[in-house]
Simulated scan of single mutants.
Amino acid sequence: MHGPAPAPPPRPASTATVAVLRVVFVGLTMLTFGLLSWVTMLRVAILRRRALDWLLFWGTCVVVVLAFVEFGTGPDEPDALAYTTLTGMFLLSCAVTTHYLIVDIKHYRPAPAVVPGVAPYVPPGYPPVPGPGAYGYPGPPHQAGPPPQPVPPHQPVQPQPQPQPQLQAQPQPQRIQRVRAELDELSDYLRREQGR
Rank of each mutant, 00 (worst) to 15 (best):
V129T: 00
F25V: 09
A13H: 08
G34L: 08
I102L: 11
L91W: 15
A13E: 12
I176A: 14
F57M: 02
P161R: 09
P123I: 15
T29P: 04
D76G: 08
P163C: 02
F25Y: 15
G34D: 04
F57N: 01
T40W: 07
G117R: 01
Y189N: 09
R22K: 10
F71N: 06
E193Y: 10
Q160K: 08
Q143W: 14
R180L: 14
T97S: 04
V63R: 01
Y126M: 08
E193I: 11
P128V: 00
Q170S: 07
R178I: 13
S14N: 04
V24T: 03
V179G: 10
L186E: 08
G72R: 04
W54I: 03
V44T: 07
R192Q: 14
R49M: 15
P153V: 05
D76S: 10
V118A: 01
Y137K: 01
G195P: 00
A13K: 08
I176R: 15
A134R: 00
M30I: 07
V20R: 09
V64T: 10
Y108V: 03
Y189F: 06
P10Y: 10
V179R: 15
Q164P: 13
A7V: 06
T29A: 04
Q149T: 09
G195L: 14
P132T: 01
T85P: 02
I105F: 06
A169V: 11
Y108A: 14
Q174C: 06
G139M: 00
Y126K: 05
P128M: 00
R196L: 12
Y121G: 05
Y108I: 08
L31K: 04
I46A: 08
R191G: 12
D79S: 03
D184Y: 11
